[in-house]
């Protein structure tokens, strides 16, 4: 636990020591706030937040792979992984430390967007329950993307490949939660397959929590999703020790 925290702190600090945190955060916030405020205030505060949370999953889809592509690939390329893996730290501590740092960074960026609902609240009535629900959903949603991105990063020393494969994986998962696509597929596939495919898409659960109703099943889903990819990540690290 203590070792995991040390890794977490170093990783988080490393985000802020490299330009990526600022470029990423700046672009992310800029696009998000621009689009959200572009849908004019006349639509009402609630409508504006809906535009914001409508765009957020898609932006995370594009940005998270760019953030996580470095996590292992860079360590392998620089050779620092050799020191990291010879510290008295378990693979699980390494993976969780890195994961938590990326999630903390994304949560920090999301906290910065709170300025938008706070401003809107000054102009009109705002129902905070779905908004806070959506923020929670966004953090969970981003976490699941981080777990996928880190997993792919652990399999290659090439950051670009890590990013592209993550992007494709996340896009596929995202689409599976898209109602129109599901309807289209329903014509071809039996209902069981549709339910299964739809069931693994994080997007579905994002919407569910976003309505402001926090269902334990949704939380459990995200925990399982992240757990699966993080565990796979530790297996990759272990396999590397074997293979050399």
């Amino acid at each position: 636990m203590r070792e995991g925290l040390v890794i977490f702190r170093r990783e988080l600090r490393s985000y802020f020591l490299s330009p990526i945190a600022y470029v990423f955060g700046g672009l992310f916030l800029g696009i998000l706030l621009f689009v959200a405020s572009a849908s004019s205030l006349q639509n009402g505060a609630q409508a504006n937040m809906q535009a914001f949370f409508g765009l957020l999953p898609f932006l995370l889809l594009l940005f998270v792979p760019a953030l996580t592509m470095r996590s292992w690939a860079e360590e392998r390329k620089q050779g620092t992984i050799e020191l990291l893996m010879t510290f008295p730290v378990t693979g699980a501590q390494l993976v969780l430390g890195k994961f938590a740092a990326a999630v903390a960074y994304l949560a920090f960026v999301l906290v910065l967007t709170l300025g938008l609902p706070l401003t809107l609240a000054a102009y009109g009535r705002l129902d905070w329950t779905p908004i806070l629900g959506s923020y929670l959903a966004s953090v969970l949603f981003a976490s699941s993307f981080v777990a996928v991105g880190m997993f792919w990063s652990s399999l290659t020393r090439d950051q670009i490949i890590a990013m592209l494969v993550s992007l494709v994986t996340l896009l596929a998962l995202y689409m599976l939660g898209y109602p129109q696509l599901i309807e289209l597929m329903a014509q071809w596939l039996p209902a069981v397959c549709i339910d299964l495919l739809n069931g693994i898409s994080p997007y579905k659960y994002f919407e569910s929590i976003g309505r402001g109703v926090i269902d334990t099943r949704d939380i459990v889903y995200f925990a399982c999703f992240c757990g699966f990819f993080l565990y796979a990540n530790t297996l990759v690290l272990q396999a590397r020790r074997q293979k050399g």
């Binding site: 040390v6 020591l17 620092t80």
Partner: peptide, 23 residues
């Protein structure tokens, strides 16, 4: 290790503190 891999973005004292903590 061979070729001395280090976290280039860190300061020397911060890096040594990190290693001391993790060790």
């Amino acid at each position: 290790p061979e070729s001395t891999p280090l976290y280039a973005e860190m300061r020397v004292d911060d890096y040594l503190m990190f290693v001391a903590e993790i060790r």
